[in-house]
Computed example of a mutant assay.
Amino acid sequence: MLLIDSWYTEFRAKLQAIACHLGYTVQEAEDIVHQFFLDLLQKDIPGVIQNPEAWLVTAFKRRLIDLHRSQQRKGHYREIESFHLPSAQEIIEKLETDTALINHIAAAYKKLPARFRRVIYMKYYQGHSTEKIVALTGLTHQTVYNNLSKGIQHLRQHLKKDTVLERLVNFMLCLLP
């Protein structure tokens, strides 16, 4: 039961978004998601689920298909478009073309202290492992880890102040067809 509660908390909004995308109203989507999780509480769930998000999305889509078929039989026809979640590659390609977002992130990156910029550049732009960064810079593992961690933390703070994260989320939502 605790497992399903945590899934409900974590994935409820995503499942509602899927239902809304397929033409259901917000209230209908909320009702369908609630019923979906209530039904899960009554069923035996497989012991080990490696990827609960994928499992839930697949099960939920099947539920929506079953619901559509039953409504179709009753004469309540609702057109369901083919649903496409963008792949990681599609998301990356669209993000790479958003020049305003890239410029904003670059400006936040330039505000970082040099020690943070250096290790972030080596790790994420040059693709070096932590061990390789240690070998190239002479810093300790802990220093490299701390600089990466604090650098990313500073980037998040700068981006939150400028509401870039909000723009990024809105951009990601626009990717859904």
Rank of each mutant, 00 (worst) to 15 (best):
M1K: 07
M1F: 09
L2C: 01
L3H: 05
I4Q: 04
I4G: 04
D5E: 13
S6A: 06
S6E: 14
W7K: 10
T9R: 15
E10P: 00
E10C: 03
F11G: 02
R12F: 15
A13T: 08
A13S: 11
A13V: 06
K14D: 12
K14E: 15
L15Q: 06
Q16D: 03
A17M: 09
I18A: 11
I18L: 15
C20Q: 12
C20T: 11
H21K: 09
L22A: 04
G23C: 01
G23T: 04
Q27H: 11
E28L: 01
E28W: 03
D31M: 00
D31K: 04
I32N: 03
V33H: 01
H34P: 00
F37R: 00
L38V: 10
L38C: 06
L40G: 10
L41V: 04
L41F: 09
L41M: 12
Q42E: 07
Q42S: 08
K43D: 08
K43A: 04
V48F: 08
Q50D: 12
Q50P: 02
Q50E: 14
E53G: 04
W55L: 08
L56V: 09
L56Y: 13
V57K: 13
T58G: 06
T58H: 13
F60C: 04
I65Y: 15
R69C: 11
S70P: 00
R73N: 03
R73K: 13
R73T: 04
K74P: 00
H76Q: 12
R78W: 05
E81T: 12
S82A: 09
S82F: 13
S82T: 14
F83D: 01
H84L: 07
L85Q: 13
S87G: 12
Q89G: 08
E90A: 14
E90G: 02
K94E: 14
L95I: 11
E96Q: 15
D98I: 02
T99M: 09
L101V: 01
I102C: 03
H104E: 03
H104C: 02
A107I: 00
Y109D: 03
K110W: 06
K110Y: 12
K111I: 08
R115Q: 14
F116G: 00
R117F: 08
R118K: 14
V119H: 09
I120M: 11
Y121N: 13
Y121P: 04
K123I: 00
Y124A: 03
Y124T: 05
G127S: 01
G127N: 04
S129F: 05
S129T: 15
T130R: 11
K132E: 15
K132I: 04
K132H: 11
I133R: 10
I133F: 14
I133K: 11
V134N: 03
A135G: 07
T137R: 05
G138Y: 14
G138N: 07
L139T: 05
H141F: 15
H141I: 09
T143N: 10
N147A: 08
N147R: 14
Q157Y: 13
H158V: 01
K160T: 10
K160E: 15
K161S: 11
T163D: 14
V164P: 00
L165E: 12
E166Y: 05
R167T: 00
L168N: 02
L168S: 07
F171M: 06
F171R: 05
F171N: 01
F171K: 10
L173V: 07
L173G: 05
C174S: 13
L175M: 15
L176D: 10
